[in-house]
């Protein structure tokens, strides 16, 4: 293959990574931004999205697109409900103490992983893409589904952006982010905002998992990498800044696609983790950080 198409392929793969990553990371960013909770179980919500999608597509009869459409709706909702439950049973009782919630979400991570292993099993299983379309030009061909993923992620993220900046719910969330005691004094039901935020963040991760599963298959350990990458994106973008998160997802996703194609992926990960540590030590507001949502 000539260099041009090769680089284009790398960029396209990077764009798909960036799109999925932006979804998952914006969920993590939202939860940290509004609740000051670092959700270590975020990757498991991603995994659950993929695993539930496998169950759902297996149960829904009819054409692949219908089964997948059902999964896109059901899996994020189921995961969001689970997250809301975890919020009510665990996080709320810890009064959202930053350090205690990290320990608790580590516990949650193990429990969810084990549950997936027990009920789903150790195998990686495929889910059929909703449609089988291949875009072909004389010198370059690419999967139509992957382009769909990029498009879908873009639409959802635009929706989240609008939710945060244009709606009353977004205003309430931003008010709670700034100062939860003041928000409470103004009659905002902070408990409900937190539960909703945690559910929304988990749902975004699950949606990312559903979208990626026709490309990579579902596996009970698949949550580790998205968790790490989401961390990287959220920290480099500036903790709690949605705009920074989106920019960072694009940068990390594209560079991950390109670097992994030309260099060792392990080396790329080493450099990325060290970069995160250095950003936190020397530039805690992030590389692209602004304080706005």
């Amino acid at each position: 293959m000539a260099f041009g198409p090769f680089l284009l392929l790398a960029l396209m793969e990077g764009l798909v990574t960036a799109a999925v990553l932006a979804l998952a990371a914006s969920g993590l960013s939202l939860v940290f931004g509004v609740m000051r909770v670092v959700n270590v179980a975020h990757g498991e919500f991603f995994m659950l999205g993929a695993v539930i999608a496998w169950f759902v597509t297996g149960m829904v009869p009819g054409p692949a697109w219908l089964a997948f459409a059902v999964a896109v709706v059901v899996a994020p909702l189921a995961v969001a409900a689970l997250a809301a439950l975890a919020d009510a049973l665990v996080l709320k009782r810890l009064n959202y103490d930053p350090e205690a919630t990290i320990v608790a979400t580590i516990g949650l991570l193990y429990m969810l992983q084990q549950a997936a292993l027990t009920f789903y099993g150790p195998d990686a299983r495929p889910v059929a893409a909703p449609f089988d379309l291949r875009l072909q030009t004389p010198w370059f061909g690419y999967s139509g589904y992957k382009l769909f993923v990029v498009l879908a992620a873009g639409v959802v993220l635009a929706g989240i952006w609008a939710l945060m900046t244009r709606t009353k719910a977004g205003l309430v969330m931003r008010a709670t982010q700034v100062d939860r005691d003041v928000a409470r004094a103004f009659g905002i039901n902070v408990d409900r905002v937190y539960m909703g935020t945690f559910a929304l963040g988990a749902g975004l991760a699950a949606l990312a998992g559903v979208l990626i599963v026709p490309i990579t298959q579902a596996h009970y350990l698949m949550g580790g990498d998205p968790l790490l990458l989401s961390f990287i994106v959220v920290i480099i973008g500036g903790l709690g800044s949605l705009r920074g998160t989106l920019v960072a997802a694009l940068v990390i996703g594209l560079s991950d696609g390109v670097i992994s194609m030309f260099f060792s992926p392990t080396l790329a990960k080493i450099l990325a983790t060290l970069l995160v540590a250095m950003v936190l030590v020397f530039r805690p507001q992030g590389l692209f950080g602004t304080r706005s949502p």
């Binding site: 670092v38 930053p98 350090e99 990290i102 790490l228 961390f231 920290i235 060792s264 392990t266 080396l267 990960k269 080493i270 983790t273 060290l274 995160v276 540590a277 250095m278 936190l280 030590v281 020397f282 805690p284």
Partner: peptide, 28 residues
């Protein structure tokens, strides 16, 4: 020397990242 410039949640994440980098280095 590096991680102790941070505290609380940042300290947790920085130590986590260093350990992860160490693990990946062992693999590399």
């Amino acid at each position: 020397l590096l991680a102790l410039r941070t505290a609380g949640v940042s300290f947790m994440i920085v130590t986590l990242m260093f350990a992860q980098a160490g693990y990946l280095t062992l693999l590399y």
